[in-house]
């Protein structure tokens, strides 16, 4: 009896909450602030700086969305989420959008009732080893000890990879990235595995980065992207097209610096539509016509965001790789803006 009342209440609140989430866009506008679920500590992707302001590749996308919806990239509140709390926080409406290096998977789409609306970073799991180990391919790691974080998909990928290659390994499970680095440097394990972007960031922090190599094999697909709740398509479209606008801006060579100039001189109809000079494209999405212009002005186009936070000029020094535009051999491809 008690249980059924409990479940009934749960169901009722779920229905209520579901109904109230129908218009995240309107909620955000009414609130005057975007609430973005973020990782509080992932080098290059999202972390507060010394002044407590979130910076990074993922954080910049949050700011761009805030600029598109509210016209001001600073009208965003970052909610730090752990990997355990992130999806619940999104589902319960605590955050409007989750941009926390979350991998798009089948079960997250269906089971958790979430929508991955874009892929802002194509990542994959890799290995790092010390140079003097004399290994040049992950397939030669038979019998190695491998440092790995517990409770992540990386653990499962690792098991699959070694099984496929009929080789064995000894896992050394650690709680977080800092522990993994420490164990790897202390020689507790021969290889350190995590997402390739994380490996690059770790390597850059070592006292002797030149003595460590990241092996060429990428053993998993980790498409990371912004997540919204299932069933709120208008809001999902806003997030998706804000991201697309940043891609198109890079494709068309529009940067934060030259935007005003392009706006004045462009003859390209797609650019005109994107910047809100022609047609009512912003209004179509329930936004202002200058929305996507504001999004680009927030932190620049996709390429600029990449370069500023994780690109070759930063200590992390990631190459564009899969994240190059489709015109340059990468996977970043935005649907046409028309």
């Amino acid at each position: 009896m008690k249980k059924s009342v409990f479940l009934g209440t749960l169901a009722a609140t779920t229905v209520l909450t579901g109904a109230a989430f129908a218009g995240t866009l309107d909620d955000v506008k009414a609130r005057g602030e975007l609430i973005c679920g973020a990782n509080p500590g992932l080098t290059g992707f999202a972390a507060p700086d010394a002044n407590g302001v979130y910076q990074g590749f993922d954080a910049s996308l949050c700011k761009a969305i805030a600029a598109a919806v509210l016209g001001d990239p600073n009208k965003v509140k970052f909610v730090p989420l752990t990997s355990e709390t992130r999806f619940t926080a999104l589902a319960s409406g605590e955050v409007d959008v989750l941009i926390r290096n979350s991998t798009w998977t089948y079960s997250r789409d269906h089971d958790l009732k979430l929508d991955f609306v874009a892929v802002n970073y194509y990542d994959g799991q890799g290995f790092m080893v010390k140079k003097d180990l004399g290994v040049s391919s992950a397939k030669e790691l038979d019998g190695a000890t491998v440092c790995i974080q517990t409770g992540t998909t990386t653990e499962l990928n690792l098991a699959d990879f070694f099984k496929q290659n009929n080789s064995t390994y000894t896992p050394v499970t650690v709680a977080d990235d800092a522990e993994a680095q420490r164990n790897y440097l202390a020689g507790t394990c021969d290889a350190f595995t995590t997402d390739a972007s994380g490996l690059a960031a770790s390597r850059s922090s070592f006292p002797d980065p030149e003595n460590h190599i990241i092996l060429p094999e990428i053993i998993s697909k980790e498409p990371l992207g912004p997540v919204v709740r299932h069933g709120d398509n208008q809001w999902g479209d806003v997030v998706r097209w804000t991201f697309n606008a940043l891609l198109i801006a890079e494709e068309k060579g529009i940067t934060k610096a030259n935007l005003a100039e392009v706006e004045a001189s462009t003859t390209d109809p797609e650019v005109k539509r994107l910047l809100g000079l022609e047609g009512d494209f912003g209004v179509m999405a329930g936004l202002d016509n200058a929305a996507f212009k504001n999004a680009i002005l927030a932190n620049g186009n996709y390429g600029e965001i990449f370069e500023a936070n994780i690109g070759a000029s930063t200590p992390i020094g990631l190459a564009r790789g899969l994240n190059a535009l489709w015109t340059q051999g990468g996977l970043q491809y935005a649907a046409p803006f028309r």
């Binding site: 509080p40 500590g41 992932l42 080098t43 290059g44 999202a46 972390a47 507060p48 700086d49 010394a50 730090p80 977080d176 990235d177 800092a178 680095q181 420490r182 960031a201 770790s202 850059s204 922090s205 070592f206 930063t314 200590p315 992390i316």
Partner: peptide, 17 residues
Amino acid sequence: KGVTTIVRADTAWKGIY
């Protein structure tokens, strides 16, 4: 853990233990 993690995520201080 909280503040330590955010501090360690800074590229300037990553790797400090």
